[in-house]
Design a protein around this nucleic acid. Structure first.
Length: 134
DNA sequence: GCCAACGTTGGC
DNA sequence: GCCAACGTTGGC
């Protein structure tokens, strides 16, 4: 079991959209580091869902339902997607501000590499965020 | 709206 | 292979 965090602008695709649809093909990733992370995801892995730009908060937990396969929106064959399904809502969204203020999360990739859209989380970080989010 | 941090592109 | 120019992301 591994833990991950993905970002999405809620105006483009929100947690509510994922809950409504029941699943999503996580396509459009065009960054090598993000792709490498996608390739390591396995079914059952937990994925925290972060709303960037307007909300700046983690709002729910998704699960990987299908491991990496070629991105159908890409002709070059270089890029991959995974399938995600909603798993749990965060009762209390965990804001970027909260994350910054929690010393246990000082090393989180979200803060250290602000532009990365798919990143791994340590189990300890996941546990802290889960507790904050209820 | 601005800008820092990065990633990519293309000329040399 | 280097690096300047440019584009994008995302926080502020």
């Amino acid at each position: 079991m591994h833990y991950w965090l993905v970002k999405s602008e809620p105006e483009t695709f929100s947690w509510a959209d994922l809950v409504r649809d029941g699943h999503v093909v996580w396509d459009g990733v065009r960054n090598y580091q993000a792709r490498n992370n996608l390739q390591q995801m396995l079914p059952g892995d937990m994925v925290l869902f972060y709303h960037s730009v307007t909300e700046k908060a983690i709002v729910g937990i998704a699960k990987v339902t299908k491991a990496a396969y070629p991105d159908p929106t890409d002709d070059s064959g270089k890029w991959v997607v995974v399938d995600l399904a909603p798993y749990r809502d965060f009762k209390d969204p965990v804001t970027l501000e909260q994350i910054k203020q929690d010393e246990r999360l000082a090393q989180i990739a979200l803060l250290r590499q602000s532009r990365l859209s798919v990143m791994p989380l340590k189990a300890e970080e996941f546990d802290v965020l889960l507790a904050l989010g209820n």
